[in-house]
Every structure is written in C-alpha cells, then in structure tokens.
Computed example of a mutant assay.
Amino acid sequence: MTKHKQHATNMLTFDIEEWFHANYDSIAAPDRSRGSNFRAHMDTLLRICRETDCKATFFVLGCIGEDYPDVVKAIAREGHDVASHGYAHELAYKQTIDEFRDDVKKSVDILENLTGTKVLGYRAPSWSIVEDNLHYLEVLEEMGMKYDASIFPVKTFLYGIPTAPTEIHKPRVNGREIDLYEVPMSVMKLGGKNIGYSGGFYFRFFPRLLIKYAIRSANRRGHSSIVYLHPREIDAYEQKLDLPFKENFIHYYSVGRTQNKLEDILRSFNFTSISEHLKSNYKMDV
C-alpha cells in the first residue's frame, strides 16, 4: 500500500560498487571467482525507485562502467543522475592531486561515453575528501563539475570533517569561494556531536522510527536529508569480506533488514536526485 508522502524533497543516493570494494587497512585479497549478485542488486534498486516514484543519484565507479555498461545505461535510461565515484574505489587522501585528477577523469570519460550526458557530480570513495585534501575540490571545479558530495561532517577512524558546514554551500578553498556546490551528508546532534542517521551503517543501525523522525525534523526546518546505500547492503546472502570484528560490524550489521527499511522510507518521503534538487532549489546551471 502506498503511503502518504511528506511534501518536502530529500535526496536519494547510491554508491555503485561491488561487494569487495572497501578501504579498511589490511584486508585480505577477496576471492572473486564466485562472481557476485551485483546485477540482481541493481535490478532491485531500480525497481524500488520506480515503485516509490523516486529519482536518485548513482555515484558509479568507472570500473563498474567497464564491467557492467548495460547497468549504467539502464540507470540513465530511467532518468536518474549518473555521477562519478572515481575509477577503482581508491581513497582520495592517499592519492596525489595528479593521481586524483587522472582517477576522476578516467571515470568521467567512461560514464559520459556510456550515457551521452555530462557527469555533474562526484563522491569520493569512503568520504575521503578531508581537511588535508580539501583543495582537491578545485580539480572538480576545473573539470566543470557542478557539485561534490564527499564530505561527512563527523569524525571517524576512516573519514570526516567534524567542523564542516552541514548545509549545501559553495566551499572556500585557498581563500576563495569555488564555483561548486558541496552537498554534505546529513547529520543529527547526539550528545553534542554530529552523527549520521540516514545512510550506510547509520541507516542500518538506527531504527526506522528514529530515521523518520530525523528526516521529518530536518524537513520541518526547511532542510533536506540525504539517504545513501551500497548495492551489497540490501543482500544478506552476498559474499562477504573477511574483516576484523569492528569493521565487520560496521560493514554488515543488519544487511538482512535494509531493503524493507529503504522501501518504507522511500514511500514515506519525497526523494529526488542531487542534480534535480540543486536545479530546483539553488538554480544550479548545467
């Protein structure tokens, strides 16, 4: 049964990668010989978007475009935003600026050749735009991109800029405001600190009633929330990396319940892609 949606518009995003793409230290080389359920995951995500009348931004790895060109074309054909997630899921803060530029350009060239449309946005693997490499955003500006969605205003062992603005803005880099929108991940205050609630581990960890409350609260204040998930997060039976306890908990907690929670959230609120949100609310030029 279709539920009545709240009026405010939020943003739906997916980071499109395989089950073995991760950036924890000292991961054993995964056995890829058994393949994956990637195509089934993508069919499911696209179906859910259709059935809930939601548009999304799909941040796609360049190597996914090479391995699954038909999937990338299907995303674009259904009216979603195809954006870059880099080429091979390498941490941006472990790349030199030239390596970063080459990595992003390689992915953009692959995606644009597949879809025939300009790539407008980027999200770094594992939120790896941090304070030390914030100037890498100038590379995206040089490439003519319109937005970045790589900054998480929290602090974890892997990523985050806890002092970053929590609203969409044009960041200042090297003393000037760059011509690029930053779309930071949604956070709520808990114990005086920013914490995510609507994507990845946070989406899987928090009960849906709390997520709905947080989204509704943001919308009442005139703000939008961002949901993000990976294809592997909707499948408890997908292959798994051999990870230490903490990383395993973060990576796989509650994957068996994610799909139903996602469908419920998407039926309860309005969601669109980042590019459509920026065009409608910030008059973004394309």
Rank of each mutant, 00 (worst) to 15 (best):
89 H>V: 04
91 L>Q: 14
95 Q>P: 02
96 T>I: 06
101 R>P: 06
106 K>W: 01
106 K>H: 08
108 V>P: 00
109 D>C: 15
110 I>H: 07
111 L>I: 05
111 L>R: 04
112 E>M: 00
115 T>H: 07
115 T>G: 07
117 T>R: 06
117 T>L: 05
119 V>M: 02
121 G>F: 00
123 R>Q: 01
123 R>M: 03
124 A>T: 07
124 A>I: 14
127 W>R: 10
129 I>D: 06
130 V>L: 11
130 V>N: 06
131 E>V: 06
132 D>Q: 06
132 D>G: 12
132 D>M: 03
134 L>M: 04
136 Y>V: 04
139 V>Q: 14
139 V>S: 15
140 L>E: 00
143 M>V: 06
143 M>N: 10
144 G>D: 00
145 M>D: 03
145 M>V: 02
145 M>H: 00
146 K>D: 15
150 S>D: 14
152 F>M: 05
153 P>C: 15
154 V>M: 10
156 T>L: 09
157 F>P: 12
157 F>Q: 04
159 Y>R: 10
159 Y>F: 02
162 P>G: 06
162 P>L: 11
165 P>F: 11
166 T>F: 09
166 T>R: 04
168 I>K: 00
173 V>H: 02
174 N>G: 02
174 N>F: 12
176 R>T: 02
176 R>N: 01
178 I>D: 00
179 D>T: 08
181 Y>I: 00
181 Y>A: 02
181 Y>P: 01
181 Y>G: 01
183 V>I: 04
187 V>D: 04
187 V>F: 12
190 L>E: 11
190 L>I: 05
190 L>D: 05
192 G>V: 09
192 G>W: 09
192 G>E: 09
193 K>R: 10
194 N>T: 05
196 G>N: 08
198 S>A: 11
198 S>G: 11
199 G>D: 12
200 G>W: 14
201 F>Q: 12
201 F>H: 08
201 F>K: 14
208 R>H: 15
214 A>Q: 13
214 A>G: 13
214 A>I: 13
215 I>N: 06
216 R>T: 11
217 S>R: 12
218 A>M: 03
218 A>L: 14
218 A>R: 13
218 A>D: 13
219 N>Q: 03
220 R>G: 12
221 R>L: 11
222 G>C: 03
224 S>Y: 06
225 S>M: 08
226 I>K: 08
226 I>Q: 09
228 Y>P: 13
229 L>A: 14
